[in-house]
Design a protein around this nucleic acid. Structure first.
Lengths: 205, 205
DNA sequence: CTTCCATTCGGCACTGGGTGCCATTAGTAT
DNA sequence: ATACTAATGGCACCCAGTGCCGAATGGAAG
């Protein structure tokens, strides 16, 4: 995914060589999300999406490796943002504080994008096929957390402690998301904070 | 899954009426696991499995809803075991102790089944398609934990606290499993214990 | 033994996601 | 105009999964 498919039609700098891409991931994603909202995920075929976007079915699969990837946009860019945030934190900040802060920061969303993001997440966590596929994305997210924790702890990234920490953080975040989707008026940041706080209290026993 | 597909060929009680099933989930699962070990999951088609088991492709899908379900056996029975174990614990045992104990108990495996279980889990966590599909099974597991926690806490099962706890426990268990798969000589119970212990220490900060 | 009924089997055709191949199209540079 | 580059999209193909329906297999009732 990410932007290595050479598609950012328009600016970028490179004077373009060869035929220009006829669309973008973002546009395809948008078209698809609209269709999903109308007919539902399962009742929307890739042909429908390609037709609605005015491209061939074969071309669709050059922009997205699978139908399941549509709601994700370019997650890799988000991961880079998270990595950068973690690296910007001072090393004397306790590990748990750093990780908790980054989870909160990663999931901070501008108010105007809340409805949009809500729809995306409702899809991702509500449609079984998408929830299953999401696991693979979450794995990449966990790796970011685990690598940071491993560096701070001075242990390999694939050892128990960073991995367990990363899994835990993912779990907490998803539990908060589920609440957020159910309660229309809830604030995601607050939910994340209380989930994290709860974890600390519960384990203090 | 479970046993509602009416296939437990042999005993059961009901004197059988109509044609008898020509195989069982267990046998199919066994045949499939063997093929997976030889050729790999992705390079084994459903036709291969059906042929190896001596049944028609169409019949295969009456025993398993999908190819992805093959390595799972009857997970529902395991979940019932877990529920029963949780219910058997005294109510004055602190919640966290109860949950931790049940995670450990759920993943206790007889020594003779270790190699078998290892292969199954290596498949489930190593093949992307299976890992993704597993999410749906893990959801059922999480529900068991969340329902118990909710009862102990006197809150709805879909509220934040039980859900976050369940997610966390799943994460810890999976982190331990990953270590177990990497280290051939490791003991799963010990890994689970140290992962749980670590979580407590880390959050005590 | 024959008839009836229940249940499983499995072939066939079809949908839908995903891929490899390759000619075509649309651009830039010379 | 020519050459080169990169994206497009049609076509054929593979595989998972489903609906339909007739055929096979068994027990029970006549």
């Amino acid at each position: 995914m990410s932007t290595d498919d050479g598609s950012p039609a328009g600016e970028g700098g490179a004077p373009r060589l060869g035929r220009r891409p006829s669309t973008t991931q973002a546009e395809l994603s948008h078209v698809a999300l609209t269709l999903f909202a109308e007919r539902g995920f399962d009742d929307t075929t890739v042909d429908d999406i390609a037709a609605a976007a005015g491209i061939g079915r074969r071309t669709f699969f050059r922009y997205f490796a699978s139908k399941n990837d549509l709601p994700w946009g370019d997650f890799d860019a988000q991961l880079d943002r998270m990595r950068a945030y973690l690296d910007s934190l001072p090393d004397d900040l306790p590990l748990m504080d750093a990780v908790c802060a980054s989870v909160i920061e990663f999931n901070r969303i501008p108010p105007e994008e809340v409805p949009w993001h809500r729809q995306r997440m409702r899809l991702l966590l509500g449609v079984p096929a998408l929830l299953a596929h999401s696991t693979l994305r979450f794995q990449a997210w966990r790796d970011v957390v685990a690598e940071y924790a491993a560096r701070r702890l001075g242990v390999p990234a694939d050892s128990l402690e960073p991995q367990a920490l990363a899994w835990t953080m993912l779990g907490i975040a998803l539990a908060a998301y589920e609440q957020w989707l159910v309660h229309e008026d809830a604030d995601l940041t607050e939910l994340l904070e209380s989930a994290l706080r709860m974890l600390g209290e519960r384990f203090a026993s």
